[in-house]
Design a protein around this nucleic acid. Structure first.
Lengths: 128, 128, 128, 128
DNA sequence: GTGGTCTAGACCACC
DNA sequence: GTGGTCTAGACCACG
């Protein structure tokens, strides 16, 4: 199961989107598996310190992408296939790498500096 | 002069904030220097394809941070000291590197894979 | 006994409220009388195809209005006086007539058209 | 133009739906015409004493039914054809008459009493 | 307990 | 000024 305690709200992007991406990254990492149950809206919103509706929106989008199945009275369940996971992986890895490179380039960082920077921060960041 | 045309609105964060960050990254890169004039709100909004009000908001925030000086009827002029630039550099470089590393780690990428990924995308990304 | 099977959930108002009103209209019609027993929550919920909790809420409100008395482990019994019935009648008849007239007037219907419309639908509607 | 001051929140159905129906009844009555502008979200919400978002939801549904057209920066405009009006008229007149008859029947009112009731309330209700 | 919806208020981008 | 969106809190129906 994914440990949502590690979630950190960071940038100015919508919270529901950050939650969505956090879950998708957990899927890519293999921490969230097919058939697993997500925490309930209330539990997760309490953990993250946000409104239940914000979590609900993230879950609704997951359902629209057919990554979870939600029924009244019971928790939302992950519905993952290998293909879905691979597709998410490609989409997100691409986007994250592209975005990071773009920002670093904009700041005039050289390729070597960038690599060194990543390596330096790799050890700084607490393991997730 | 900075090439605003390359600017792409991508994530869900407010546009005025993306503009603000784009300018700050230009400052870090040394492309935007002390005493230089920023394009007028009208010109920049046309370049970016956004509303003048949105650019205005970004400029207002820059002024609040005392990074530009807007004289009545004239263009906005950068007011940069070495210390300001260093401060922005630390703040933004730190945040961008940390954020990138965190996302990659969340996806279960190893340090070596991360470095390879960055290097691969470095060449893909068009120069700015 | 009242024929709950005819009950149809239609508008967007809460189901428990529709149940409440349906019972009150039965009281006005004289179909539900003093001392009579209401069906159990379980039975009524099955008849209406709704959750027992929803029926429970309607019954609780009836009890708060002192229109029924629920003894532990037993069915709910109607506790009606002439005055209560008259009061409900005035309240509901007033509201239903007023609401119907208001809606028709809003649509620019004339008094004669309205009467004709009611008469026409009177025969269409299956008897309850 | 429709005079929203006459709007009265009545039953337990969602406010946005009541607003939607109020507007549709105005269309049927011919008070709201093609090409006319609806009051802005803020103005109407202030008039009705509700949240701008509630009005927004009603307007959004109108737009989904292609009865209005909304653009940023300018007010929503009615887009009505004779066929649309006729269609709304049939739908709403049917529903209102059916609902009124059903309620009156449930209360054990006879056809003659019902007609008399409607006529009596017709004069009571302030003209709209 | 669960998920779904409605109302509310603040903010964003646009004209 | 305009419409659109995000976050928040309360309520509903269900198991």
């Amino acid at each position: 199961m994914i440990s949502f305690e590690e979630f950190i709200m960071q940038d100015g992007s919508p919270i529901y989107q950050q939650i969505l991406l956090f879950i998708k990254r957990g899927i890519i990492a293999g921490i969230i598996k097919d058939g697993e149950e997500l925490p309930s809206r209330r539990v997760l919103s309490a953990l993250l310190g946000v409104n239940p509706n914000t979590v609900q929106k993230a879950y609704r989008l997951l359902e629209e992408e057919k990554l979870i199945q939600s029924l009244q009275g019971s928790r939302s369940t992950m519905v993952l296939t290998e293909e879905k996971v691979r597709s998410i992986r490609e989409e997100l890895l691409e986007e994250d790498a592209r975005s990071a490179v773009q920002k670093l380039k904009q700041m005039g960082i050289s390729r070597e500096e960038a690599v060194e920077l990543i390596e330096r921060y790799w050890d700084k960041e607490s393991n997730l």
